[in-house]
Nucleic acid binder design. Structure first.
Lengths: 119, 119, 119, 119
DNA sequence: GTGGTCTAGACCACT
DNA sequence: GTGGTCTAGACCACC
């Protein structure tokens, strides 16, 4: 994984893990890698792994069982909620940004449709 | 102007000025405020103004005449190019983000159309 | 290091570091001194160090790992390219300047040869 | 004339006029343009013209006759001296720069010879 | 008055 | 400890 230097690494990895959870690559209730494994996987410092799980726990995306590891939440509702949150944030940013650049919603529709056709 | 604490002030102001140029609030070739004026306008330090103009110059958005001031580029092509660049970046991020969350392009179309209707 | 008062200190130091990289005093991929160390080394303000590394990064001479430090590029090709660029710029300026003063290329050859002999 | 933003305009113009004198475009004893004419010619501020002549006078390149204008020195020796000065400065900078980049004098000879052949 | 450079020093997030 | 940002304020050359 290549990191964008302007966004904290831990935020980028959290985002990545969230997407794996939402897309089903990681299932609800599944055990996440240990902090050491995570550190190896992403070539980061174990301290950063720690920070990642701590922050995800704070967001109720996962929970820790002492001596067993960190697990993805079982709450499917919560997972859907996260998906919706992330989507809304993307949509809002996109539309706000584009209208500030002088694009109308009608133009945005065309752009999306054309984008589909190009592919 | 209210600043988002997670993004450097100078980046936010650059974005703002770019939008003023794109929207025609500031015309091609027009003189931009002096670094001191800019500092007053946004309640920032003149050093930050300096950083803003230097970075914009690096992006060929403006140029400097020694002792006279900083001016928006006369190159209208360049201004259009910036608008397109900013738009493309927004579009790419949006579509990539949404598809990673499992949305299809068709769904994106519906979201945009609905967004329009809601208003 | 003694600074020439007519050229910004940060430009002179960049030039110096570039030469250290080209000559192999600093190796590709090697960690550069921290901004604070650089500040001490050259008796400059840490802000000036910052400016130096930022500009060098812009020129793809080095890259930054957050919280770890600034490193010389690993791209040996790039380093050779910089050497060639710096050389070409010197050659061009020299020949243009001398021909403007009315020297022919033949005369330049003689000057260089004599310069060698004088030593 | 296109100015390099990193060198004072007045220095660039002085350099340019010196070259015109050395190359014979402007003859010894010839009247130079008035400050106003010079300002028009180079699209600069008359203050800058003033500064240019003042500095050239200081270097004994020209002299002023009250009410008549500014004239190039009649002293051909002086003109040759300036030529030699400018040349020496170019040569010194070139050789110093190139040796710092690791080029030997022999290589410099080849570069100059090849440069000739390319043309 | 204008931008460019620099110092001094602070605060922050990241590793 | 590392870089990144920012403030405060100074000095300079240039136009």
């Amino acid at each position: 994984m290549i990191f964008n230097n302007n966004i904290p690494i831990y935020v980028q990895i959290i985002d990545n893990i969230k997407k794996e959870i939402i897309s089903g690559t990681i299932l609800p209730g599944e055990k996440l890698p240990s902090t050491r494994e995570l550190a190896l996987k992403y070539s980061i410092n174990p301290n950063t792994s720690q920070k990642i799980y701590k922050e995800m726990e704070r967001q109720n995306i996962c929970f820790t069982k002492r001596g067993l590891g960190t697990f993805v939440t079982n709450d499917i509702q919560k997972i859907n909620e996260i998906r919706q949150q992330m989507a809304n944030s993307l949509i809002k940013d996109f539309i706000r940004g584009m209208t500030e650049l002088g694009f109308s919603i009608e133009e945005l529709e065309k752009i999306i449709v054309n984008y589909n056709d190009e592919k």
